[in-house]
Amino acid sequence: MEAFFVVNPVAGSGRARRAWNRLQDLVGAPLPSSLTRAPGQAVELALGAAHEGYPLVVAVGGDGTANEVVNGLMQLPPERRPAFGQVSCGTGNDFARNTGIPRRLETWLRLLREPHLRPLDLGRVNGRYFLNITGVGFDAEVAHLGGQLPTFIPGTFNYMVAILAQLATYRNQLMRIRVDGRSWEERCLLVAVGNLPHCAGGLNLCPTARADDGLLETVVVGDLTRSEVLRVLPRVFPGTHVRHPKVQVLAAREVEVDSDAPLHWQADGEVMAGLPARLDAHPAAIQLLAPAAAAAAGLPQAAQRQAEPSLPRHAGRAR
């Protein structure tokens, strides 16, 4: 399958550049590509490749690079939109973890030579598309701080350092939440809205989110004390934090989160300022180059959830 590669050479503290050079060595010839030189440029490069008629545009980098490439491709109407792929070599690599995209380059090349495409849902927040998770509150403030830490600190460890630092200063905030027309106010640690389960280098924050059901998984983590946060945090890795009585999970097509506090929001690890955060689901928005097993996966759970939007998947307390 003919592909154009958008390469972020500084992703993963230079791992992306090394992976890109190795990939071309394995192919034995130069591949059509452009290298980014500034944040945000992957959007333009992906859009340019689409206008040139490439049927597949591949992000070489981490989740931030993938996010930018998708936002470039989504500027085109569906009938002109190329498929999307990723060579995952960033810091957190959550999109590859979520979708089964192989990290080994030799295996990834087989994927390119024997391509399988599957439709992929996307989320959108304030006009920006996201692949994994958007969060407001504690996780976004952690991501904001983590972005200021040295880039040589690995993804999950970076997140843990930022978590420990924020635990000393962060205060739960009163948030106004609307999920498919149902509204309430609650003091929250965070609100996470997931198209896929993992973020921050492996945290299973939205454990039952799937990008093939047309819905977003909304995880509302209520007014946890610091000691409760410390007890719940290890449970985020296996995804069992959603069993805590102060956590509720809802499936939704549209979500809005607002607060009077000066909070950030993050989408795929990219931090933005300014609430409210208005989110909506975009079913089957783009075709993904994926392993055959993922491309052929059945959707029995998705069909059930599409029939039951905005119902709690796990409600810590009734409202």
Results as ranks from 00 to 15, higher is better:
V193I: 15
G62E: 07
Q173E: 15
R319P: 07
D94L: 10
F237T: 05
A38M: 09
Y129D: 02
A165K: 14
V191R: 06
R103I: 07
G127M: 05
M272W: 15
R104N: 11
P115R: 13
L149C: 05
A46Y: 01
D25Q: 15
Q173K: 14
M272P: 00
V236Q: 03
R18F: 00
P238W: 00
V255G: 09
D260K: 12
Q173D: 07
D213C: 15
G53W: 07
G274D: 10
L56Q: 13
P30V: 01
G135V: 01
A192E: 05
D180C: 06
A143Y: 01
L230D: 02
G316V: 05
E79Q: 14
E270W: 09
V69L: 04
G61K: 13
N8T: 07
A292R: 15
F237L: 14
E106A: 12
Y159W: 10
V249S: 12
P291K: 13
D25I: 05
P78W: 08
E2S: 15
E254G: 00
N126G: 07
G239N: 09
G146T: 08
V125N: 02
P238E: 00
R97D: 06
P102R: 13
L149D: 08
A303Y: 15
P115L: 13
V271G: 02
M160N: 08
V220T: 12
Y170E: 06
A16L: 06
L167H: 10
A273L: 10
E270Q: 12
L164H: 08
A46S: 05
I133W: 06
V43W: 02
R80C: 05
A251Q: 15
R305Q: 14
A209K: 10
A292C: 14
A165M: 12
Q75D: 04
H116V: 03
A200N: 15
R22M: 09
L112R: 13
E52R: 15
R18M: 00
A59S: 11
G85R: 08
A3T: 09
D63N: 08
L196D: 02
F4I: 01
T240H: 11
N204S: 11
P312T: 07
P78H: 10
F4W: 00
T218D: 01
I133T: 14
C199P: 01
A200M: 14
R226W: 07
G100F: 03
R243G: 08
A140N: 04
E185R: 15
K246V: 03
A293C: 01
I286V: 14
E270S: 04
G316S: 04
V69W: 06
L56E: 13
S34N: 04
R176S: 13
A211Y: 07
L299S: 14
A277T: 10
V247E: 03
H264K: 07
V58P: 10
P276V: 09
A273C: 04
P39L: 04
A285V: 11
A143M: 06
L174F: 00
T107G: 01
G194L: 12
I163S: 02
